[in-house]
Design a protein around this nucleic acid. Structure first.
Lengths: 155, 155
DNA sequence: GTAAGTGCAAATGATTTGCAGATGT
DNA sequence: ACATCTGCAAATCATTTGCACTTAC
């Protein structure tokens, strides 16, 4: 099924391997790091170009999990994301959780939602518990995904 | 109620006026344009700093309606957004549309969602109707919000 | 052989930051 | 007076693009 419509280059093959290896939620830079471990000359712009291409082919999708870079993962098993605004914790939300929203969006506005492209932000269980007082949603402050380790085994 | 904790400067007052005048969904640059119409020397960085400040005070919130710049609006009347990936059409989604999602997120993950911060993308009624064949969600391509007119009266 | 793909450097767009000078209280 | 704000220029971060050169087919 590889690269229908284009050429099979080493950079492309390597990018796909990186995607399969690190199942889910890598930034372009994460993937670049993995690919460059074997092929140091593969440039980040090539990564971006191929991610674009693979997305156009429907092989993968990108998602915005918050401020900061986009995350890429294979298109199989469609799911949305819940991301904690405090700690960056990300949980995959199965498509059926969006069924109610999808239905009312369609009914009221004729709108068909795609719950995959942008994450739903909020507060994870741990952060809700650790909260001082229920002051609505004031004190938000920018957070960064991607733990101290940088790429890959992130969290 | 103005600027509790800080000073009342002309730039700040003017920014608030711009926000009240153009009810809802302005980018920082839109707001800068409005402010600069009267005070040409107010710099965009000042706009950003004050938007940050006002958000910290809970006066306004920012939302990401897609790729591209963030939108700011007054914190009153909490609502989410549905944004068409094809044409950029934006509709305000009343909070209760997210009730089902909020409930299942809490039940399954202890997660408390904030439907305001990121928009839910998808396809608006017009674009769904104009669609050739139901090819799932392949052919996405980047879109730009902000119609030809630029700031303000945008749609 | 030739068009598609690549590496690199430079451009882009949105936002942030350092700093010296201006201004609200 | 003096800390807070502001204007400006430069920095940053994620991503894109132009171009000359390689490479898969």
């Amino acid at each position: 099924m590889r690269a229908r419509g284009g050429r099979v280059t080493t950079a492309r093959r390597s990018l796909l391997e990186a995607l399969f290896a690190s199942s889910g939620h890598c930034t372009a830079e994460d993937l670049a790091a993995i690919v460059q471990a074997k092929m140091p000359d593969v440039h980040i712009s090539t990564i971006y170009r191929n991610l674009d291409e693979l997305e156009r082919l429907g092989v993968l999708v990108h998602t915005h999990l918050g401020h900061g870079p986009a995350s890429y993962h294979l298109a199989s098993s469609p799911h949305g994301h819940l991301v904690c605004e405090r700690c960056g914790e990300t949980v995959e939300a199965p498509a059926e959780m969006f069924a109610g929203l999808a239905r009312s969006a369609r009914k009221r506005f004729g709108f068909r939602i795609d719950p995959r492209h942008f994450a739903v932000l909020g507060a994870c269980a741990a952060c809700v518990a650790a909260e001082p007082a229920p002051v609505s949603f004031a004190g938000r402050r920018k957070f960064t995904q991607r733990g101290p380790g940088g790429s890959l085994g992130d969290r």
